Computed example of a mutant assay.
Amino acid sequence: MERSDIRQKTDRENQVLGILAKSVRRIIQGYAGGLEGLQEIRLRTGQPVRIVQDNKEEILPSAGSPHIITKEEVRETMDYISHYSLYAYENELRQGFLTIEGGHRVGVAGKVIMEKDKVKNIQYISSVNIRVSHEVIGCADSLLPYITKNKQVCHTLIISPPCCGKTTLIRDLIRQISDGNQYVKGCSVGVVDERSELGGCYLGIAQNHLGSRTDILDCCPKAEGMIMLIRSMAPQVIAVDEIGTSEDIHAVEYAMQCGCKLIASVHGLDMDEAKKKPVLGELIRRRMFERYVVLGNGEHPGEIRGIYDERGSVLCRE
């Protein structure tokens, strides 16, 4: 392992372990399986510590039996995450998650406080889900030749079930399109990162590598963000993850009509399912997207099952 890789691995471990209650930290540090491949750490009051590592869930023991999380351990963890000031993170908490240094995302659950039919805050937090950020540099290498023409990006829709690496794939696409390479001329990319997953911004600065020509709107609704970017940053490409609402789809169409190329993703099993979605199905029937990429469960993030053109003809299949 190269020195830079070792340093990155150490930084990631320190970032994740440093926000845990000390008792939980010791348990995870002493785990015989190590931290390589760690994806999630779940803390639920009154329940055992669970981790997801290499797509496998495990319950961590303490002195031979499962360690049961206490409300004090959840509170201590949240103190570390918020630097002892949960109030200062009220805007982030109302979305149900915080992003910490390194781009790691911390989801929370507890008592929801409402104000004027909108979520104002979450109190009495009882569950914490730490999702460890992983970049896979180069995972989009095999896809780029199929979604570019004459060194320009094609309107591309990525169709994927949950947990199949679509966010990881889009992140690497953004980086390569922004910096440019043999397949695409480097260009300005606008990213609407509604859930802080693509850039993993911490204090406004992206923790993931999204390229030198990329502008990010962090924690911004997708539909509103796409229009804001077009008006203010003049992007040549716009990238968004998990479009779904009719407002999202209409904003995608608006961006296309403004001359921006679109990289977007949607939950789905295949082309047929995507065609059945309201509003989005109409865009597909009108052949607004030039490329469709279908992902599936595989050994590596972003494993491609098929690539199709605007007519639905197969360009590449697993």
Rank of each mutant, 00 (worst) to 15 (best):
I6Y: 01
K9Y: 02
E13G: 06
N14W: 05
Q15M: 02
L17R: 04
G18S: 04
L20S: 06
S23Q: 13
G33D: 15
E36H: 04
E40H: 13
I51G: 09
V52R: 15
Q53R: 15
Q53L: 15
N55C: 05
P61Y: 08
P66K: 12
T70L: 06
E73R: 07
T77L: 04
Y84C: 14
L86S: 14
L86K: 13
L86I: 08
Y89K: 10
H104S: 13
H104F: 00
A109D: 14
K111C: 03
I113N: 12
V119G: 06
I122T: 07
V128M: 14
N129K: 03
A140P: 00
D141L: 11
L143W: 08
P145Y: 10
Y146A: 01
T148M: 03
K149E: 06
K151E: 15
H155M: 07
T156Y: 00
L157E: 00
I158N: 00
S160D: 10
L169P: 15
R171W: 13
R175F: 07
D179S: 03
D179Q: 07
Q182I: 10
V192N: 10
E194N: 06
S196Q: 08
E197Q: 12
G204C: 09
S212Q: 14
I216S: 04
I216F: 09
I227N: 02
R231M: 00
P235V: 01
P235L: 03
V240N: 01
D241K: 08
E242L: 08
I249P: 09
H250V: 14
V252S: 03
A255M: 05
M256H: 05
Q257K: 14
G259K: 10
K261Y: 02
V266Y: 00
H267F: 04
D272E: 15
D272K: 11
G281W: 04
R286G: 01
M288C: 12
M288I: 02
Y292M: 05
G296H: 14
N297D: 02
G298D: 02
E299G: 06
E299H: 09
P301A: 13
D309I: 14
E310C: 10
L315P: 02
